[in-house]
Design a protein around this nucleic acid. Structure first.
Length: 513
RNA sequence: GGGCCUGUAGCUCAGCUAGGUAGAGCGAUCGACUCUUAAUCGAUCGGCCAAGGGUUCGAAUCCCUUCAGGCCCGCCA
């Protein structure tokens, strides 16, 4: 059984209306691992839905987290914003509401294209609405008990002035030290390092719980039943351990069913020439992996398994595997071994499987076609020469368009040289021997009348080589030279069949006068 | 110091909470009228299931130990 189904079954036995929570702290550039969290949550949601459960997936954006330091990618003036909550810091590019919005937006776009079915919730709104107030109140009143728990769980010594809640200084906008003895619901005094002394209202957006308290507070607030989180939280004495005790002993709530997941590593840009490679960012992964395939990548293995994201040829294998699972699903026949992968394919569709086998265009083929034209219409035209695209649905067209974009992005930045070519790189007559020219002339004549289709083209190429008294290998190489200026390339039969016959013949004749 | 995860075919992984003759894909090799390879179809090769011990009629699967690798935690979210 697929892991998401196992979790779904467990959850439904305990909870008829489960809430799945997940989230992100957009303090900086987003990592692919954050995607895994969202996709894992969505997978569990889909699986529960599949079992008939009434389920919600909420996505919490931790917009009140402080900027910890000025990251290298930030301009110098951001030094001034260190320590301030990120929803109050201006957007670096000026196009978004604030800093948090700036960094989370590409990610929200990704969630959209991945079809993650969730409700977006901003933490600063929750504070502003007073949703945290009951928990803040409890944390302040039972502060000594909180300290005791944290001491026991983490095994660290905690000072008596430990603050579970930090008021936001109204003067400098940074988090300040609360004056616990002054607390009287809903007000708490504070003293800030900037010299200001003031009072914060815990029912308003005037302060923040520290992470170890905020997390369990969210569990209580939403009644979270299941939550995926990175393994960093799962370590012994980590925030899940302490959160579990705090939600039970302080907030009178329950900890969610934990789904710890491993991190995603990024593999270099291929085994051969990795020296020049720039590292792959989360955004790169989103841009070069078709959304359904990215879903599949995370769903095919258990969450606790580490994933190496391969930005080289591996991406082609992955897309092909996805397509194969699609076929297996519709054929209804698969071995026990493939069962989980086929199920992963289904979950990647979020219960929105089409009725019939979608039209498939092999991903590797797309890699070639994309390089033969410069626009989507061109891709459609080329594909139309060898495949019937008339029945393509709107959705299939969208999916194809997205795949073309991904292939382009990949070719531009990560594809190994070996798969790249350009039809404008064909060599001129001066670079060809008389033997080669003679061959091209013969081939042009033979191709003139042959059926314009992969197999027959291949046959002509081979037979003509024999006639010309050169090896077949030499024949192929000559044609590649004339077309793309290399000695190897895409499988020639299909490659030529993809192109327009007249253009091919014209090219051959122009270099073999 | 503490904890988690992983170790099954060259590679990526299924199988392990129903213990009963080792699986898939990719790769490789070979073949498909003498057809390059990054296509397709077919076939073949390929594993003492990390090591050792235990439970069992029987263990990749359960228990213990060891080894190897990866990652995380010490108040940062």
């Amino acid at each position: 059984m697929h892991w998401a189904d196992v979790i779904a079954k467990d959850i439904l036995e305990k909870d008829k209306h489960p809430i799945i929570a997940t989230g992100i702290s957009p303090t900086g550039v987003i990592h692919v691992g954050s995607l895994r969290e969202a996709i894992t949550g969505e997978a569990v949601r889909s699986a529960i839905k599949d079992l008939g459960g009434d389920v919600r997936l909420i996505y919490l954006i931790d917009s009140v987290d402080p900027l910890r330091k000025r990251y290298p990618f930030l301009p110098e003036e951001y030094e001034d914003y260190v320590g301030m909550p990120i929803f109050r810091i201006p957007c670096p590019c000026g196009k978004h509401d604030n800093y948090a919005h700036h960094f989370v937006q590409p990610f929200l776009d990704a969630l959209d294209s991945l079809k993650v079915n969730c409700e977006i919730i901003w933490t600063h709104d929750l504070y502003a609405q007073g949703k945290f107030a009951p928990m803040i109140d409890l944390a302040l009143r039972k502060r000594s008990q909180v300290i005791e728990i944290l001491k026991e769980v983490t095994g660290r010594d905690l000072k008596d002035d430990f603050a579970p809640y930090n008021p936001l200084c109204e003067n400098c906008g940074r988090f300040a030290q609360p004056l616990h003895e002054s607390y009287e619901y809903p007000h708490i005094g504070y003293h800030c390092t900037c010299g200001h002394t003031g009072t914060a209202d815990i029912t308003k957006m005037e302060g923040k719980l520290v992470w170890r308290l905020e997390w369990p507070a969210k569990w209580k607030m939403f009644g979270t039943s299941v939550e995926p989180f990175g393994k960093d939280h799962a370590a012994a004495g980590g925030s899940y351990d302490s959160g579990k005790r705090i939600v039970e002993e302080i907030f009178d709530g329950k900890a969610p069913y934990p789904v710890p997941y491993e991190f995603v590593q990024l593999k270099g840009i291929g085994q051969m020439h990795k020296s020049t490679g720039s590292p792959v960012t989360g955004l790169d992964a989103i841009n070069m992996t078709p959304p359904e395939v990215l879903n599949y990548l995370f769903l095919r293995v258990n969450p606790q398994r580490a994933i190496d994201y391969d930005s080289g040829m591996g991406i082609l294998d992955l897309a092909d595997e996805y397509d194969r699972m699609e076929r297996l699903h519709f054929e209804g026949e698969c071995t026990e071994c493939e069962e989980n992968s086929v199920r992963a394919y289904c979950i990647a569709q979020h219960n929105a499987l089409s009725e019939e086998v979608p039209q498939q265009v092999p991903y590797r083929h797309l890699v070639n076609v994309v390089q033969m034209t410069d626009c989507f219409e061109g891709v459609m035209e080329i594909l139309g020469r060898t495949e019937n695209l008339e029945d393509l649905t709107k959705e299939e067209t969208l999916k194809l368009r997205k795949r073309v974009e991904c292939v382009k992005y990949w070719l531009d930045r990560f594809a190994p040289e070996q798969v790249k070519f350009s039809v404008s790189d064909g060599v001129g007559p001066e670079s060809l021997s008389s033997e080669e020219k003679k061959y091209l002339a013969l081939v042009s004549d033979a191709l003139d009348s042959v059926e314009w289709e992969s197999d027959s083209i291949s046959n002509v190429v081979v037979e003509t080589a024999k006639e010309a008294g050169i090896s077949t290998k030499k024949g192929f190489q000559t044609i590649y030279k004339a077309l793309i200026g290399r000695t190897s390339g895409p499988r020639l039969g299909t490659f030529l069949a993809d192109m327009d016959r007249e253009n091919v013949l014209e090219r051959f004749r122009s270099v073999s006068p």
